[in-house]
Computed example of a mutant assay.
Amino acid sequence: MATYYEDIDVGDTHTFGDRTISKDEIIEFAEQYDPQTYHVDEDAAEDSMFGELIASGWHTASLCMREFVENIADEAWLGARGIDELRWIKPVTPGDTLSMTVEVVDKRPLEDDPTVGHVDTRLTAYNQDDEAVITWIGLGIVARRDAEQS
Rank of each mutant, 00 (worst) to 15 (best):
T135Q: 06
F29G: 01
D24H: 14
T3M: 13
V119M: 06
R144G: 06
R144H: 08
P114I: 12
D9Y: 10
P109R: 13
R81H: 03
F29I: 09
A125F: 00
T20A: 14
A30R: 01
A147E: 15
A30F: 07
F50G: 09
D18W: 06
A30Y: 03
R81A: 07
R87S: 12
D106R: 15
E131P: 03
E103Y: 02
Q128R: 10
S150V: 11
A125E: 00
V10D: 12
V40H: 02
P35Y: 02
Y38H: 14
I134P: 01
G11V: 08
D43V: 14
D120R: 09
G82W: 04
L63K: 04
V40G: 08
H59Q: 15
H59T: 05
V119H: 01
W77Y: 11
D24F: 12
I72V: 06
Q149C: 03
H14V: 05
R81P: 00
E103G: 02
H59A: 06
V69T: 10
E148P: 05
V10C: 12
R81F: 06
F29L: 11
D129N: 13
T135F: 00
G138A: 02
E75Q: 12
R81D: 06
P94M: 15
A125Q: 01
E28G: 11
S56V: 09
M65G: 05
M100R: 00
Y38C: 11
G57E: 01
E52V: 08
I134Y: 00
S22G: 14
E6G: 09
L98R: 04
A132Q: 04
